[in-house]
Amino acid sequence: MNSTLKVLISGTGFAGQGHADAFRAAGVKVVGIVGRTPKVVEEVALKKGISYYGTNWQQALEDCKPDIVSIATPGGAHYETITQAINYGCHVFSDKPLTHNGETAIALYELAEKKQVKTAFASSFRYMPHILHAKQLIADGAIGEPTEVECMSHFNLERDIPFGWSHRKEDGGGRLNNNFTHMMSIVTSVIGENILSIIGEVRDDLGKAPIVEGVHNFKTRRDFIPKDLNDPTLKWGESNVEWSYTVMAQLESQIATKPVSVLFKHGGLNPRFNEDHIVFYGTKGAIYIKGHYGMGPLYLWDDSKTWNEQALPQDIVDNQPQVDGDTERNWHYLVREFVKDIKGENVAPYQSFKDGSLYQQLIDLIRENNNWTDVRHLQH
């Protein structure tokens, strides 16, 4: 494929602008951008130097004739948009979550397979440098056989962030869709992609949030928190989705004789006392990575019986896109791989709609919260 590939962007917020930058860096021409609000999509198009913009997705597909579409809207808006793009014959790069439930996610995966288009699912924090380093160390036997993984995170999000898609299950909100997807991707990238079993519990600690007009960018929504939360004219929206979760899983590993146990513990509204972290335990050692998404540094516990900080290998450093921001850099990494694959170049496996549809089914199961055993009848 020698001609320049073309991409059409769906979404005008932080993700849409970030996707546009990532595709341009990969040598793809951004031929258009589509959003909900005419004024906002015009402003973003002018800011990013995109000549075509509008609010009609189907019309944009016909006018721009893209090879690829990039989906950067909340998950509840994905199904129709992606369905139209696949039927048009486009390859699809979608941010997480794939959709708002397992049924529609499966439908998109099956449609993509039927139409033989390539797909990428951007639970892309698996490309963090220290996560790649941990994968390399464990594959080389640095901790022996992996036995257990622990993922702990406390975000202390402001309770009064304006009401929006993140508060609504039907719009793709919730911490499972927007945190667990990355965490499961990180762990499976290191341990193995085959998820054997899962159990979980979720909790809505929030209840409600103020309704505020004018919020278009997920990254700047904190700026719109009302100054007076006791204002009697203020309207409130009710949350219907989880803000905390606890999930346990078992994964198959090619270098372990037994399933590897994984604990995912996330409190979206809870303050952290110490560092968030990811730990990989094994029969001969352990790897500790500071930060909820593996920001680093990375420490190795080995025969020395102490935690020793490990420098990043130069090959991992050299292979990282040179852009600011973890989220943005990970988008660039996955987009680079996706574009190479579309061009027919050899690339390492990356996550697709197969993974996105599986994750959405897992989230549906976890949200059922039906794993409790009533023990009140037992003798005390």
Rank of each mutant, 00 (worst) to 15 (best):
V31A: 06
E42I: 08
Q58Y: 01
A26W: 06
P66E: 12
A72Q: 08
A22V: 05
C64G: 04
H19I: 00
A45D: 07
G16R: 10
Q58K: 13
V69Q: 01
E43S: 13
D63A: 14
A20R: 06
A20K: 03
V34E: 05
I68R: 00
N56E: 13
I33F: 05
I33P: 03
I33T: 07
A72Y: 06
A25S: 15
K65S: 13
G35T: 11
Y52N: 15
V31Y: 03
A25M: 14
K39Y: 05
A72H: 07
V40F: 02
G75K: 11
C64I: 01
D63H: 10
E42S: 15
Q59T: 12
K29R: 12
P38N: 02
H19E: 09
V31H: 06
A20H: 07
D21I: 11
K39Q: 15
V34N: 13
A20F: 04
T37G: 03
D67T: 06
G32P: 12
A72S: 15
T37K: 13
I68A: 00
G16H: 11
D21Y: 04
G27P: 02
P66N: 12
G54R: 14
G32T: 14
A22C: 05
T37C: 08
V44E: 00
N56F: 06
A25H: 08
A60R: 07
E62P: 00
P66S: 10
G27V: 05
A15I: 14
P74R: 06
R24P: 04
L61T: 00
Q59K: 14
K48V: 01
K29L: 11
R36P: 02
I71D: 04
Y52H: 15
E43W: 02
P38R: 10
V44S: 02
A20C: 07
V31C: 12
K48R: 11
L46R: 13
G16Q: 11
A60F: 07
G75W: 09
G35P: 09
Y52W: 15
N56W: 01
V40Y: 05
V44Q: 02
A15R: 04
L46F: 06
G75P: 11
V40D: 03
N56G: 02
R24V: 05
V44P: 04
A60G: 11
D67H: 11
S70W: 02
V28I: 10
A60V: 08
G54N: 15
A15C: 06
A60Q: 08
W57E: 02
V34S: 12
P66L: 13
W57R: 05
V44D: 01
V40G: 00
Q58S: 15
E62Y: 00
V31W: 04
L61P: 04
K29Q: 14
L61E: 01
A15S: 11
A60L: 09
Q59P: 04
S51G: 02
A60I: 08
D67L: 09
